[in-house]
Amino acid sequence: MNGPKSPNSWQYRGLNMVNPGLDHLSNGLIDLVKTGHNVVAGSADLQYSNGLNRFAEAYPDRYISFGISEQNMVSTAAGIATTGVVPFVATFASFLGLLTCEQIRMDVAYSAQPVRLVGHHTGISLGFYGTSHHATEDIGTMRSIADLTVVSPSDGAQLEAAIRASANWDQPIYFRIGRGRDPVVYEGGTTFEFGKAHVHGFGEDLTIIACGITVHAALEAAAAMNAAGRSVGVIDMASIKPLDRDAIIEAADRSKSGRLMTVEEHNVLGGLGAAVAEVLTDEGKGIRLKRHGIHDEYSLIAPPTHLYAHYKLDGAGIRAVAEEFLRS
């Protein structure tokens, strides 16, 4: 018999099997079709990376294979959307948020077409694939585009909830999702509302505002700090645009230390931290804000978990940064 002998060997087409979290993308879309929504999906040669192969198997007539042509994919999706059909198109966040940025602005947002853009394997989650595959600028590029909604779910359940909610959302949406192996935040499922944060608690010492994969790590950090006597809360700011300004203002008002912190798997320039800083200055809150994330640099090469530890984006790292900030 030809082929590898070891049961630990694996090939690319099995990748989705080790990415169970990305099933949520297909699950969400399949639910939309089943509930009568005229939804189609497409991908740029990455259906096994984003799990859309499951949608393609369920609804082969509703799946579009674009090949490696991201710009054509986005502009075509915009054309589809003019007819009332709602297209979800997915590729790596690094390509969607940068390579197709202009197509998103012109054909999707400016043209007001309700396209759903799904950027997956965001941040530094592609590890040693390197900077070409890292997306640490996409929040910045996408949120600066007028009339474009930006959502960064923290786990698969929240992604599914956001996809369900999108059925009643007219604006185009950029979904920024992880690599599918992200830890679960919402064990029993969750709800999602555009413009509303999921508040896990406000802290008197510190409230950590996070999004995406860093929410789970922030909750770990907060739990450890609270166990040590601190008062630390966490806000899951999945709705980056529209942003939940009220939650930010309340976190600032409840802070007795005069400090707030943001965490993101993104450059601290232009991302979630910048968005929160804009609200705090708009409102004249006069509070110190620690923006934690990637500090205007290109990531080292390493497996993802090693990178999260190196950049202090895991639970222990966020706790260390938070403690240092509270001491400063």
Partner: peptide, 18 residues
């Protein structure tokens, strides 16, 4: 410049679902 053919393709393709 360069987007219009893709836009046209999307509009034509959508006939499959409309």
């Amino acid at each position: 410049i360069g987007h219009a053919l893709s836009n046209a393709i999307g509009i034509a393709l959508a006939q499959r679902w409309t």
